[in-house]
Design a protein around this nucleic acid. Sequence first.
DNA 1: GTCTATAGCTGGATAGAC
DNA 2: GTCTATCCAGCTATAGAC
Lengths: 216, 216
Amino acid sequence: MADTRQKLIVGAMETIRTHGIAGVSARTVAASAGVNQALVFYHFGSVDDLLSEAFLSATRARVERYRERLAAVATVRDLLDVGRRLHEEERALGNVTVLAQLLAGAQSDAKLAGSTAEALGLWVAEIEAVLVRVLAGTPLADLADSAGLAAAVSAAFIGLELFEGVDPVGAHAALTSLEQLAVLVEVMEDLGPVTRRALRAKLRPPAARSPRRSRA
Amino acid sequence: MADTRQKLIVGAMETIRTHGIAGVSARTVAASAGVNQALVFYHFGSVDDLLSEAFLSATRARVERYRERLAAVATVRDLLDVGRRLHEEERALGNVTVLAQLLAGAQSDAKLAGSTAEALGLWVAEIEAVLVRVLAGTPLADLADSAGLAAAVSAAFIGLELFEGVDPVGAHAALTSLEQLAVLVEVMEDLGPVTRRALRAKLRPPAARSPRRSRA
DNA sequence: GTCTATAGCTGGATAGAC
DNA sequence: GTCTATCCAGCTATAGAC
């Protein structure tokens, strides 16, 4: 059947999740999938190619699944709610774990780097779209560029995932802090126009700001 | 000589840096150190033990080296300057790379997890001390707990490092955005007392805030 | 498409000569 | 303390039977 491919894809994700990128091999993946080891090479050519394809298809499915919910986000408070929900769901499924492992592997494996970057890009693009919508009108909108912010948010989640593996308490505290930071932005939405203008004036056009060094 | 140990420690760091956690073995490390493979086991017992010891000693040395500079930080602007400097220096030396790789490995290796957590803790503690000093008096001081913030900052840098490996442009934009976010905090330092009190009132005691769900 | 078998390599770890 | 030699496990990848 054509679902040996599917079994291998599922097995690949499962293996990265449980054994980490260093524990992935044609044998471990095939064992987890319950199929013969040689089929990895028959269907995908190499282990790396299997990983790439598995991760891309898994990510596409996840992003798809969240598109609707993200589209409904209109305020910072919404974003935090959906964000936490997404984080918990992804955590339970282990997708962020997989992303972190692949990123680690990709640092010294050009082949993995390409597909990992592509999958990561799917998330970043989605996050950016939401941020643009939610931050419109807040001082942040003209403070930081949206692509950069989206990348920063993604990076933070990846780092948190790794952090959580060795220090769950610390990671939880970090997540809470980040949420409270976001409250700052939320608060700005509710400020009176006078205060807002004062803030805005302080922030000035960021494009005109010299890129490095200037006296405080 | 007793510096075979040292050679192996240096070789271990170098190997993680260049080949990633998945590329580390007694043989690759020994080759990079220019010593015999069997000496890994004679001096350290196992590869994992070597990695643990190497990383802890390297981290201790780095934290030591930055203690002074961090102690001189008094404002958010200072913090950003030193932070960027530190980030660039660590990047050039590859220490954050190593940290990220070890964290990835530690997710499925309890032995690594312990020592990695310990080393990570060294950085977090240092960062927290600075944050407490710098944020004293800003609304952030009572918004988020300092340990959580320090962990969040650390996690963000780790995530950025991995991000950078597959998308350098995106990672750079993310870092820039984070710096501009920090400007928000800086701006608050300069706000008049009236505005500040308004902000503070909005933020309220975070301890009294119900942990989840409440109508907006 | 799937399986067995196997070549050829790299891995951790140890024994024992020096 | 260091080196050689070695065992054995696990790895990628392929050839070839079914």
